[in-house]
């Protein structure tokens, strides 16, 4: 299958510091991959470049066969790349339904102010969306008052609602309980299986990575060190030394 995301020789310098040092990465359409690596290895910088928050110093990013290198975040988002931030980024002063409305309006590509003035969809549309996302009980709750795990789920579901075809999830289980982590694994599998959405995850939690059971990309010092199945990675002595730290029981 042709890749939905293709990153070729991307570098990024901040002054004299080389944050990315020629990253190559391919994500086949409909697949999930997990990026791991120590702090400062460039994972978040890579997400910033894919989503348009930062332009790369050199290299090329392609999404669905289209060159998106250096485009702005709104344009890249409209093409179908949805980014979940490390700290949950939802509309905190607004109810869950209002949050979903903003996402649903984005899905209709109604980005110009004028196109937003028509009637809102039937209430039952939002209700169904919320029920499908497991958020039905929270419809009228102000987002900042949601439990942490539900907030993360809301953010992911908002991105799905915008009809994104690629999700970039930056540490989706940070600060979660075990039960919440398990629910997130189920959610990611669900989204992939039912909607065919491709997903790239940054994660530190090795239990989560094992549960997700997908190809793992190991990044070190601004480049991709290796890529493979979780079991191969975990037994690779070089990676254990570099990243997992000896001795670690995963």
């Amino acid at each position: 299958m042709s890749p939905i995301l293709s990153i070729e020789a991307v570098t990024k310098n901040f002054g004299g510091i080389q944050a990315l040092n020629g990253v190559d990465l391919q994500l086949p359409d409909g697949d999930v991959k997990c990026i791991i690596g120590p702090n400062g290895c460039g994972k978040s910088t890579l997400f910033n470049i894919i989503s348009g928050a930062l332009p790369p110093t050199s290299g090329r990013v392609e999404f669905a066969g289209e060159d998106i290198t250096g485009l702005t975040p709104p344009i890249i988002s409209r093409l179908g790349v949805g980014r979940k931030f490390q700290v949950p980024a939802v509309f905190g002063d607004m109810t869950v339904t209002e949050n979903i409305e903003i996402a649903a309006a984005a899905a209709k590509r109604a980005y110009l102010p004028l196109s937003m003035l028509r009637r809102r969809p039937d209430r039952s549309d939002y209700d169904r969306l919320l029920a499908d996302s497991g958020l039905g009980d929270y419809a009228g709750v102000v987002a900042s008052e949601l439990p942490h795990g539900i907030k993360q789920r809301l953010e992911i579901m908002m991105l799905v609602t915008t009809s994104a075809r690629l999700l970039l999830l930056d540490e989706p289980t940070a600060g979660m309980t075990e039960a919440e982590t398990a629910a997130t694994v189920a959610l990611i599998r669900d989204i992939r299986a039912n909607l065919g959405v491709s997903i790239l995850v940054i994660e530190h939690d090795m239990a989560f990575v094992r549960e997700l059971d997908c190809p793992v990309v190991v990044m070190m010092k601004g480049a991709v060190l290796t890529e493979g199945a979780y079991d191969d990675i975990k037994d690779d002595p070089e990676i254990r030394r570099a990243y997992l730290g000896e001795p670690v029981a995963c």
């Binding site: 975040p73 988002s77 980014r83 931030f85 903003i102 984005a106 110009l112 991105l159 915008t162």
Partner: peptide
Amino acid sequence: MRAAFMGYD
């Protein structure tokens, strides 16, 4: 920022 990363200008 959230709005911009959902495609809104």
